[in-house]
C-alpha cells in the first residue's frame, strides 16, 4: 500500500494530480446522478386508443379507469404498475404482472385498455450491439 502510494507520487506531477482528482470526481458524480434517477417515471393509460391518464409511478396507490367493459383497477407500487382488477373474462392483463421499465406495455384487449410505462417517448432498447 505504502509502496503503491510512493510510486503514484513519483509517477505524477502536481498538474497530473489535479487532473486525476477532477476527472475521477466528475465521473463519480456523473455515475451517482445516473443511478439515482428513478426508473420508468410515468405510465400512460389509453382507452380505445386515446390517452386518458398519465400516472406518475413515484407513490403507491390504486387508480380506477373506466374501460369499455367497466371499471378497471390499476395498482402502482415501487415505480411499477399493474392491472389489479379488470372486468374481462380471461384476465390476461392481470397475468402480465408488474411493468417498471420504460416501454413495457400491458393491454386488456376486450376492455380496450392499454398501459405503457415511460410516456410517449419511452422507447426501450431492443438490443445493444457493439
Amino acid at each position: 500500500m505504502k509502496g503503491t502510494l510512493t510510486f503514484l507520487a513519483r509517477a505524477t506531477t502536481p498538474a497530473d494530480r489535479l487532473v486525476l482528482i477532477a476527472v475521477w470526481g466528475g465521473m463519480i458524480l456523473l455515475g451517482i446522478q445516473a443511478f439515482a434517477r428513478p426508473p420508468g417515471e410515468e405510465a400512460v393509460v389509453r382507452v380505445r386508443g386515446e390517452a386518458v391518464k398519465r400516472l406518475a409511478l413515484d407513490r403507491p396507490r390504486k387508480v380506477t379507469i373506466r374501460g369499455a367493459l367497466g371499471p378497471t383497477e390499476l395498482q402502482i407500487r415501487d415505480g411499477a404498475i399493474r392491472f389489479r382488477h379488470a372486468p374481462c373474462q380471461r384476465k390476461r392483463c392481470l397475468g402480465r404482472g408488474w411493468l417498471a421499465q420504460a416501454g413495457e406495455t400491458a393491454a386488456c384487449v376486450p376492455n380496450r385498455v392499454l398501459v405503457r410505462v415511460g410516456g410517449e417517448q419511452g422507447k426501450p432498447w431492443h438490443a445493444v450491439s457493439y
Partner: peptide
Amino acid sequence: GRGLGPVGYSVI
C-alpha cells in the same frame, strides 16, 4: 507551469 506528466495526458 511544470505541466502534465504521462498520467495526466493519459487521463485527459
